[in-house]
Design a protein around this nucleic acid. Structure first.
Lengths: 154, 154
DNA sequence: TAGGACGTTCAAGTGCACTTGAAGCAAGCG
DNA sequence: CGCTTGCTTCAAGTGCACTTGAACGTCCTA
């Protein structure tokens, strides 16, 4: 599948469907993760995480005394949400726009809501399309299955 | 019933994989379309249609006396199906593989059915993911709608 | 103190699915 | 006849979302 895989992310003993930034238990109880840990947790590659930061898709990520990234639980929440948005087909550029609004604070609540409402509409449309596709696939599968039965007198 | 008024003079379902066609009205009642008409009908660009043929994603397309492509209703059905498959996220390369199986005739019915069944499973998964995403979006939209005074979150 | 694992930056490369361009032929119209 | 429109082929270019590579730094264990 081209459109972002539904990667079997090795899932920690945790629910991933984060809704808001509330406290979710994480791989361990802490709040500081290396890029490697985050890569494992999110299913994204370390390079991709750095690239996300570079293009402005991540809020500021802390650094350790020697310059290594230290991701927080909040970062994990954000990445989980980003992964969901990607899943809907939203382009990375649009997510960067959204991230910028988040950085601008509460003043952009309305704008953010509008974006998410638009995204919601697109997701609904997409689900409908996929359901239609399911119908088409079923018809074809039936056809092939029927043709097979018809020739089962060999 | 699943469609296809395509061929007025149609014989038994012995042939290609044209089972579920489209419910779109055809440009007219005929069976010969220029690349431009097909582009308009399918929403694909003429160049893309030529490229599809080039990579083996189209069955043989007829040509006029002077070399211009003449698409048939069957070609239109195929393109509609291709569009659906693309919608599911299936890579073009995989669709080419499927097209090759179609070219090989009835002997590949089973294999084709398996591919479509796999695709079906993927579509079902994707729909579930999108529905989860809807839940997440709704929660965030509610948050933004309900919180004018709340402290900043994400 | 040497090795290896893991991290860093900057830059170039990859794969996919088209998209655009260049050059040319053929038909139809004023 | 010349012009426009619309097709043809072959080839190179584009945009997106990473991905890979090179060169180097730092920490831990042996």
């Amino acid at each position: 599948m081209t459109v972002i895989d539904s990667n079997p992310v090795k899932s920690p003993p945790v629910d991933v469907c984060v809704v808001a930034g509330t406290d979710h238990p994480r791989p361990d109880g802490q709040d500081r993760y290396t890029i490697r840990e985050v890569a494992e947790y999110t299913g994204l590659r370390a390079h991709t995480l750095r690239w996300y930061e570079e293009i402005g898709l991540m809020p500021h990520v802390e650094r350790s005394h020697n310059g290594q990234r230290l991701f927080s639980n909040r970062d994990l929440d954000w990445l989980t949400f980003v992964r969901r948005l990607r899943l809907t087909g939203m382009p990375v550029a649009d997510m960067v726009t959204f991230a910028e609004l988040v950085r601008q604070g509460e003043a952009t609540f309305d704008e953010r809501r509008e974006i998410l409402e638009q995204t919601r509409r697109e997701v609904v449309t997409r689900i409908a399309e996929l359901q239609d596709t399911l119908t088409v696939l079923d018809a074809k599968i039936d056809f092939y299955a029927g043709a097979r039965r018809a020739s089962e007198r060999d």
